[in-house]
């Protein structure tokens, strides 16, 4: 039987939404879903090599005054960092990270080498639309 498909438009480059995306992704790979993540706008900034593992470069999506509390609580609860969730999901399941070509350029990322090594490719919008059309679950985060 063919695996179910999840398509995720990852618009956000915020710590909390990236973490939420990682948690959702983990649940989906546990269920053997194939996942295609399309990294848009500020999401592409978070995927830059120099940014991804540097929390100082990433903020909360809202209520920024809770940023330190969020980070401290995640540490206390042994919650993985967002990029660790993403990498683990890729290790366990069929997960692909596609960077939007335009979004990458906004932040100076022109080639796939400019992004984290676990990013798969740079794509155009048509790929995302096709994946969204064919997905069992589609999320915009």
């Amino acid at each position: 039987m063919e695996n179910k498909k999840m398509c995720m438009a990852l618009f956000s480059g915020s710590l909390d939404k990236l973490t939420a995306a990682g948690v959702i992704m983990s649940g989906a790979v546990a269920d053997d879903m194939d996942i295609d993540v399309y990294v848009l706008m500020q999401g592409a900034r978070a995927f830059l090599k120099d940014i991804a593992e540097n929390k100082d470069q990433l903020n909360m999506s809202e209520n920024v005054e809770y940023r330190e509390q969020f980070i401290a609580a995640c540490k206390d609860l042994n919650v993985k960092e967002w990029h660790q969730f993403f990498m683990e999901a890729k290790e366990i399941g069929n997960v692909k990270f596609h960077i939007c070509g335009l979004a990458g350029k906004l932040w100076g990322g022109n080639k796939i080498e400019d992004f984290v090594e676990w990013a798969d490719d740079i794509v155009g919008i048509s790929e995302y639309i096709t994946a969204a059309q064919n997905a069992d679950i589609h999320l915009f985060i």
Partner: peptide, 14 residues
């Protein structure tokens, strides 16, 4: 026991 959701589920999956 040292991990929060979704850690245990992923550990079980692995």
């Amino acid at each position: 026991r040292g991990t929060a959701c979704p850690g245990p589920l992923l550990e079980a999956k692995k």
